[in-house]
Amino acid sequence: MKPIDYCREKAQASGSSFLAGFKFLSAKQQDAMLVLYAYCRELDDIVDECSDVNVARQTLAWWRSDLEKVFQAACVPEHPVNQALQSVAADFVLPQDELVELINGMEMDLHHVRYQTFEDLQYYCYRVAGVVGRLIARILGFQHQQTLEYAEKLGLALQLTNIIRDVGEDARMGRIYLPMDELQQFNVPAHTILSYTPTPEFAALMRFQFERAQQIYREAVALLPDADKKSQKAGLVMGSIYHALLLEIERDGLQNVLQYKIKIPSPRKMRIALWTWLFGFKP
């Protein structure tokens, strides 16, 4: 199997919203997005599926070593995703340090199951989502450096949407990503979340999370320079799909994230993608 075919199978098996906005791109850009997604998915699977923390940490260390080979022209990486990434990184000038930061972010999941403040959470989000936004912006192309700031902030908005959506699922793994000082502010003990018990206080906490995520979507889009709106349109499509997910969670009742995971059906994703491609994204 060719490395790109491995990446394609990895992406198709996920059913993620991540790739829905990229069907309008050139074949070369689509392949680059597939490779980037497969890279993220492989790292995420190590953390989620490996029950032994030491084994997971060793596996991530192996990925660091194999990633080094991506940036050495005389070397061939061992993993098919990194083999595919080697040409993508060269073609789109993807910085090694941003790809390393993704590994750093995944490693945080091995020893951080709580974040004390939103500032602490933002640092994690930068590593697992902000740098992804920056890498996507590089693949799509841009003229202004401010576009990287937009992409990083949009990545934060998407990750906060994931955190809101996954409160119950994360609790089942003993994780709480909502900042602990905000739980205290809204009088929500950790056991309320870990026991999946909706309360009026939890509803108020989630309303606060929702409104902050909404504001960050607006701030992100406002940062995008007009000159780069056309080239970055596929990223805006992805942002629009995740924003629709955030609104769907709010319509469903923010407390329900403790009980089940909200999803946007694929046909609706494609309608959102087409609408955004034609008319833009205004959160």
Results as ranks from 00 to 15, higher is better:
Ala20Arg: 03
Lys23Thr: 13
Phe24Thr: 14
Lys28Leu: 09
Gln30Gly: 11
Gln30Asp: 07
Ala32His: 01
Ala32Met: 04
Met33Asp: 03
Leu34Cys: 09
Leu36Glu: 01
Tyr37Pro: 09
Tyr37Asp: 07
Ala38Cys: 02
Arg41Cys: 04
Leu43Ser: 05
Asp45Lys: 05
Ile46Lys: 01
Val47Glu: 06
Glu49Trp: 03
Glu49Pro: 02
Cys50Phe: 12
Asn54Pro: 00
Val55Met: 12
Ala56Pro: 08
Arg57Glu: 12
Arg57Val: 04
Gln58Pro: 00
Thr59Val: 14
Leu60Asn: 09
Ala61Trp: 07
Trp63Arg: 13
Trp63Gly: 04
Arg64Met: 12
Leu67Asp: 12
Glu68Trp: 05
Glu68Gly: 10
Lys69Glu: 11
Gln72Tyr: 11
Gln72Met: 14
Val76Ala: 13
Pro77Phe: 09
Glu78Ser: 13
Glu78Ile: 15
Ser87Ile: 10
Val88Gln: 03
Val88Glu: 00
Ala89Glu: 06
Ala89Pro: 04
Ala90Asp: 11
Ala90Asn: 08
Ala90Tyr: 08
Phe92His: 02
Phe92Asp: 07
Val93Phe: 09
Pro95His: 06
Asp97Ala: 13
Ile103Lys: 00
Ile103Leu: 02
Asn104Lys: 13
Asn104Thr: 13
Gly105Thr: 08
Gly105Tyr: 06
Met106Trp: 02
Met108Ile: 14
Met108Cys: 12
Asp109Val: 06
His111Trp: 12
His111Gly: 07
Arg114Glu: 04
Tyr115Cys: 03
Thr117Asn: 02
Phe118Glu: 14
Glu119Thr: 15
Tyr124Met: 01
Tyr124Lys: 01
Cys125Leu: 03
Tyr126His: 10
Arg127Asp: 08
Arg127Lys: 15
Ala129Arg: 02
Val131Asn: 06
Val131Leu: 02
Gly133Tyr: 00
Leu135Ala: 03
Leu135His: 05
Ala137Asn: 03
Ala137Thr: 07
Arg138Trp: 05
Arg138His: 02
Ile139Arg: 00
Ile139Ala: 04
Gln143Ala: 11
Gln145Arg: 04
Thr147Gly: 00
Glu149Pro: 01
Glu149Leu: 09
Ala151His: 04
Glu152Met: 12
Lys153Thr: 14
Lys153Trp: 01
Gly155Asn: 01
Ala157His: 03
Leu158Met: 15
Gln159Asp: 10
